[in-house]
Design a protein around this nucleic acid. Sequence first.
DNA 1: CTAACGTACAACCACATGGTTGTAGGAGAA
DNA 2: TTCTCCTACAACCATGTGGTTGTACGTTAG
Lengths: 117, 117
Amino acid sequence: MVVGELSEADADSIFHALADATRRDIIARVIRKEESVSALAQHYPMSFAAVQKHVAVLERASLIAKRRRGREQIVHPDMAALRRAARLLDAYEEVWRHRVARIEQILAEDQEGKAEL
Amino acid sequence: MVVGELSEADADSIFHALADATRRDIIARVIRKEESVSALAQHYPMSFAAVQKHVAVLERASLIAKRRRGREQIVHPDMAALRRAARLLDAYEEVWRHRVARIEQILAEDQEGKAEL
DNA sequence: CTAACGTACAACCACATGGTTGTAGGAGAA
DNA sequence: TTCTCCTACAACCATGTGGTTGTACGTTAG
């Protein structure tokens, strides 16, 4: 099931990157305000290195990017990638909505296997 | 970042379940047409037990459910859960879209740190 | 009843993940 | 320069993941 302009591997890495509360929070945080890796690290009850790894996972999924500012690495969202990801999510939702629509249609027309589901 | 009516743990399991091409394909497949676990297994180059595990992951995330029909277990999408998941995805998209809107606003008004991003 | 089918589950393996600590290097600050 | 801060990265550990095979059990078909 290839959806939109993202490969299956892209989808894999995006969903995997999103499958962790800390990483979702990092995304939300840098969307609100760009922060350095160490500034980000201070918000979480784990080591700097651990946060660094989470950032790397998000970076591999192209959901965020880093920009150097002096000795700091400023983490910021990758807007283009985020839009692509959003459209990927949209596409799945679309399939589901259509199916929901189709089911209502089927329930209205078809007579076998009704009731349950 | 709590979004909608799903807990962080719910989001974890949903995104994790979606982070595998085989599992995404299973969802797409049962949305199109309900199938037994062994029928599903025949579509993939792996053992029945492996597919069974993928189904279990999707089931834990409440994206699908099973219904017994004779000696078969029919896998079908859990529409309510799929809608909740879609809304969760929507919510993330919303945050991103708003941020995108805000950025255009900022670029139009603000004058420091323009150019990049 | 018996045989075949669909499922469930346990044991096992290789590998990735999420965390730790420690070491090292580059850039600013003093 | 020298010290300090931020970052990068390696090594290590425990646990989880995705796959395998094998065994057991309920259900349907002959």
